[in-house]
Every structure is written in C-alpha cells, then in structure tokens.
Amino acid sequence: MSALTKIVIPVAGLGTRVLPASKAIPKEMLTVVDKPVIQHVVEEAIKAGFTEIILVTRSGKSSIEDHFDKHYELEAELARKGKDALLTAVRDILPIDVSICAVRQNQPLGLGHAVLCAAPAIGNDDFAVMLPDMLIHSTQTEQCDLTEMVADYHNSGAAQIMVEAVPLEHVERYGVVDCAGKPLAPGQSQPIVGMVEKPPQAEAPSNQAIVGRYILPARVMELLKDTKPGAGGEIQLTDALDQLIKEAPINAYSMRGKTYDCGNKLGFLQANVVFGLHHSETANDFKDFIKGLV
C-alpha cells in the first residue's frame, strides 16, 4: 500500500447543465457563498490529508489554476489598506505544503479517460479522485467523510467508493453499487460485489449511488487503458472498477454528510442556501431573510 497523497480532480467539463453561466466562466469557478466550488473541493481534499492536487483540465480553464496562484498586486493592495482578514483569506487559499498541477484532457471522452490523463503524475502510487461538481456538507466539524474513507483504506487495504442512498426512481442518473444486499448505514463500509452505470430502476442492484469520491490503487490506470467506451459512448471509470473488483477488494463507504450537485442549477442553488446558512458572516441575516420569504 503506497502513501496516499495524490488526488485527481477532473475539471475539463463544458458545464452545459449550468449554461449560460458557464459560457465564459468555468463552472468550477462559480461561487458558493464566498468561494468558488473548486476551492470548497480542494479544501475538503486538504482536510483529508492530500497534499498533491492534480487538475485534469483543458483550454479556456486557466482561471482555475490562477485562483490557486499568488496575486501579488491584490495582496499588496489589501495590505496597504489594512484589510488583514481579507488578506489572510487570499493568502491561505493553498497551504504552503500543498502543491497543485494541471494536465490536459484533449478530448471529452468521459470520466475514465480524464482520470487516465493523470497517469503520468500518478505513477505507481495509489490515489484518490474527486468530482468538482459534488459538494458535501456535514455538520460534523472534526472529520469529513473523505477523511473516514482514507482511514478505512489504511485499515482494510481495500479501494474505496463513496456512496449515498438515493430514491430508487433516481438511480438511472448514477453509477450504482451492489453490496450483495447487505445493509449500509451512514459511516459504514461494505464490500462491493459489482456495480453498474446508470441502470434502469428495475435493474438497479441497490439504491446506493456513487457520489464522486474514490480512493483507488495505481492498478486502475492499467485497467483504464483497456476500457472500451461504455454508457454514452464514453470511457467510464465505473467499467474499469468493475474489472478491478475481480482481482482486488473494493469497499462502499456510506457517507454521513449530504451531497449537492453544483453541476446543475437546482443543486447549485441548494448548496448556496445550505452553506450560506452555516457561514459565520451570513448565517443569521440569511436565516431571517428566508423566514421572511416563508
């Protein structure tokens, strides 16, 4: 088992579900309260102990990398005006012990292909994958779900997939895991015996949907090289993991928090409401505002 420091975040998508907002601005740079979605995701990764962030990107998305770079003029101006709190917030976007790099995905061939594009940066190390669309909110401040997945990876040696129970009528929107009918309570893990991408309701093995957090062995990169296009004509990560399960254990970790899909308009609005109600600067006044609407 290799040290777990690297995490792949695919950000090359076109953001069609939030158009026209994403026409000129990467969807990952849309803000939830006072931070871009991508910053929320990177902070989650850092909290779980990851120190090497690998963005899989494309042309037209340089603002994502710029956001995590230094802005000397802005910092100097904030310092001159004595705006210390804002200066700290800008300087602390990326801790000094965390690195971030970008690799290109030159064709939109699916999540599996995006992950494979990061293979040179991953090498022979085990790694994690996070989808930037999915924000997780939890009332637990000490640990996040990704932290608990990392702990299970170290304890069990098994690859990890985060799942969330969804209504059966929605399973066709997700990759779904099969845990041989074993119950899966929040905060628990169970071995996976199979998985399927976007199954019809009648064919779904469970209502446990994959929600965009994975901890995977380096072996996945070799499997992705041989993975043929699947659902939607794309190279699906789920298909490679279905092959991995034939030779190595994979656990499903049932999350305690709640996901908000910022890749669509409704999920983005929901995330802003939930995060706004828990932000120290906005919580009280925002709560009063919502009560006034009701």
Rank of each mutant, 00 (worst) to 15 (best):
194 G>L: 02
42 V>G: 02
212 G>P: 11
43 E>C: 09
168 L>F: 08
200 P>H: 13
3 A>H: 10
162 M>S: 11
53 I>W: 02
276 G>M: 04
200 P>Y: 04
104 R>C: 01
241 L>D: 00
78 L>T: 06
172 E>Q: 14
141 T>W: 00
279 H>I: 01
44 E>V: 02
214 Y>D: 07
181 G>Y: 05
277 L>H: 09
289 F>I: 06
263 G>V: 05
70 K>V: 15
10 P>T: 08
265 K>F: 12
14 L>I: 03
183 P>N: 10
97 D>I: 02
250 I>E: 01
242 D>Q: 14
229 P>L: 12
51 T>S: 15
292 G>T: 09
256 R>I: 09
251 N>C: 12
271 A>G: 06
155 N>A: 15
258 K>D: 07
192 I>D: 04
265 K>R: 14
74 L>D: 12
166 V>K: 15
150 V>N: 05
10 P>K: 04
169 E>F: 07
48 A>W: 01
230 G>C: 11
22 S>I: 11
220 V>M: 10
214 Y>H: 15
158 A>P: 00
112 G>V: 10
187 G>E: 09
57 T>Q: 04
176 V>Y: 05
200 P>C: 10
76 A>P: 00
37 V>N: 05
30 L>N: 08
45 A>T: 05
189 S>Y: 04
68 F>G: 11
279 H>T: 00
105 Q>G: 12
32 V>E: 09
211 V>H: 01
48 A>Q: 03
41 V>P: 06
197 E>L: 13
66 D>K: 14
